[in-house]
Amino acid sequence: MIRLDPKRSQNIAFAILLIVTILIIVPVLLIIGVIVKEGYSAITWEFLTGMPKDGMRGGGILPAIVGTLSIVTCAICITLPIGVLAAIYLNEYAKDNLLTRIIKLSIVNLAGVPSVVYGLFGLGLFVMLLKFGVSIIAGALTLSIMELPVIITTSRQALNSVPYSFREASLSLGVSRWQTIAHVVLPNALPGIMTGAILSIARISGETAPILFTAAAFYVPRLPHSVFDQVMALPYHLYIISTQIPNMPKNITYGTALVLLVMVLTMSLTAIVTRYYFRKRKKW
């Protein structure tokens, strides 16, 4: 057996690590690149603002865009306040006891439940039992429960990064705990909470399985009137046109993927950049 000298084996090892890392990152860029290249020719004003035509082989995707936006808006409006309050409980009030351990374990497990199981749950509870039917609200509630652990975890990190001394300074003035949280802790945790929220919005915009049987419709050529309407949704639409419809014009599929990707990646990038920016100019 040949023994390499340590310096050389280090160089080889580091080179391999670098190659592997590139191997993971490059496909990400390739995926984005391919979709942009093949899809941008489909992006016209009519495509973004029109109704689908010819069994979805033509026309636009407006109802899918509006559907996704409505579901996601409702979901984040439900999950953000609940998640932030839960994070406040865990970070500011919870004692180190059995209850807290069970809560934390529940959060971990909630985060691990497969998205399609959330779909089943949403179907059973919101669509059937509560009789919301397949609707924006049923989908939004399902997604909001799915996203709850993510919001709780990121908000908690944000709260935790606010120095404990800020709380003491406020409490020592006779300010109550809640007032301290509302006026000192939350404002300083806000950038972190918001980046977490934006990342969550990005994530749920692209989720398909949870809305499959709770909100999404194959084809609804009109815009929703209320939260109890069934809607088209971008990710579901992409699934349908890429698997279920024969002779689909290629550029429409890519165009739909591009719109979804742009929506999701813009939000993710915003979140990443905001976080970077706030980390740099953090005041304490």
């Binding site: 800020f166 020592s172 300010v175």
Partner: peptide, 26 residues
Amino acid sequence: LRKRCGMVFALPLSLPMSVYDNVAYG
């Protein structure tokens, strides 16, 4: 009680807000 017994800490714990708001905070 805490309103009656003010406290000044070892490290200057200014809150991340303006001078005015720090004093007016309480």
